[in-house]
Write a protein that binds this DNA or RNA. Structure first.
Length: 323
DNA sequence: AACAAAGACAACCGCGGGAAC
DNA sequence: GGTTCCCGCGGTTGTCTTTGT
């Protein structure tokens, strides 16, 4: 027995909202508020599902929303919070006045993910790709290591090919992420060159695994707080100068037992999976209470207002969640 | 100018939590 | 304690616009 549908699908309009519908919804809500979304479309004279009305209102019509581009500060906040919270868009959005979770999610998926990938940083774990690979290599038994390059390529090739084929990146940057520089003039990489490019990526990954110590020491993601030896456990504290992003997180979430981010490296793995479990456990340990689930964690209010400082963002950037 | 690909954004879907009964 | 219902969340899909060929 499944749940009953939230509305009669047959009698409901879908797709883009018209200005007339927007006006009807806005004026109804201005008069009666947003109580009981199920009844709102009926009373407002709209042939829409209540859910659709709620979405339209919260993501577009609400008067306190910003519609312009994201500022550098907002992007910085998103990246920083995402490195701690994963895909908890509503919590992240609560720290950005005038932005919705949908805004933040879309901006992340369309811009920030690529920006981080372009810097050689995995947007899921917020670690450099080369570091992830060497970290995996050190955890594998020797017989498995030779297969790692292939596996790593499977995980990262889309990101790397995006770089190689769509963006002009210099050989310096390629060296930074442990790859052999190749001719990467954007759009010059022809389709038939892809196989060769993949082979070069494999070779670069293999080299990074075999001899991580020879990687350039002047990595753009060098830790600025924790020492290099503890980098695996303190990846949240590094700067990526080219991007302007700075990971200024406290080492609280990771301190001690190495990396707290040892979640699956495979694409599609949710940032709210194992990694989040570990974060949740850590939060529970540190605060002597269960942070998992519950309204407080969901809306982030207690998280950001508590005495427990989770990161080094200026306090004024941690706004109270929007109501 | 025409077409295709990529990007950006809006909207939908299904699920889970929690309140009310 | 179980059921129903509403709401909010995150993932995904659809559509329009922009850019490249």
């Amino acid at each position: 027995m499944g749940r009953i549908p939230c509305c009669e699908k047959d009698n409901v309009k879908r797709g883009q909202w018209t200005p007339e519908e927007d006006h009807k919804l806005s004026s109804y809500i201005a008069q009666h508020g947003t109580r009981n979304w199920r009844l709102i479309p009926k009373h407002a004279g709209l042939q829409r599902c209540g859910k659709s009305c709620r979405l339209r209102w919260t993501n577009y019509l609400r008067p306190d929303l910003k519609h312009g581009q994201f500022s550098d500060a907002e992007e910085q906040t998103i990246v920083t919070l995402h490195s701690v919270l994963g895909n908890r868009w509503s919590v992240i959005a609560a720290q950005l006045p005038g932005r919705t979770d949908n805004d933040v999610k879309n901006h992340w998926n369309t811009k920030l993910k690529k920006k981080l990938s372009g810097m050689g940083i995995d947007p899921v774990t917020h670690k450099p790709f080369s570091h992830l690979i060497t970290e995996i290599a050190t955890t594998l038994a020797p017989p498995q290591v030779p297969h790692l390059a292939e596996a790593a390529l499977g995980c990262f090739k889309d990101e790397m090919l995006h770089l190689l084929t769509k963006k002009r990146i210099g050989s310096y940057q390629m060296q930074q992420i442990g790859l052999t520089p190749v001719n990467t003039a954007a759009t010059q990489v022809k389709h038939e060159d892809r196989d060769e490019t993949i082979e070069k990526i494999k070779y670069g990954i293999s080299r990074a695994i075999k001899d991580p110590e020879t990687s350039p020491t002047n990595k753009p993601w060098d830790p600025v707080v924790a020492g290099p030896a503890n980098f695996a456990g303190s990846c949240n504290a590094f700067a990526a100068p080219d991007s302007g992003f700075h990971y200024g997180l406290s080492s609280l979430v990771n301190e001690g037992n190495g990396s707290a981010w040892n979640q699956s490296m495979c694409p599609g793995s949710s940032a709210t999976g194992d990694r989040q479990c570990q974060l949740d456990e850590k939060l529970e340990d540190e605060n002597g209470q269960d942070w998992k689930g519950g309204k407080e964690m969901r809306d982030g209010a207690t998280l950001f207002n508590s005495d427990c400082v989770l990161w080094d963002l200026p306090s004024e950037e941690l706004m109270s969640p929007m109501v």
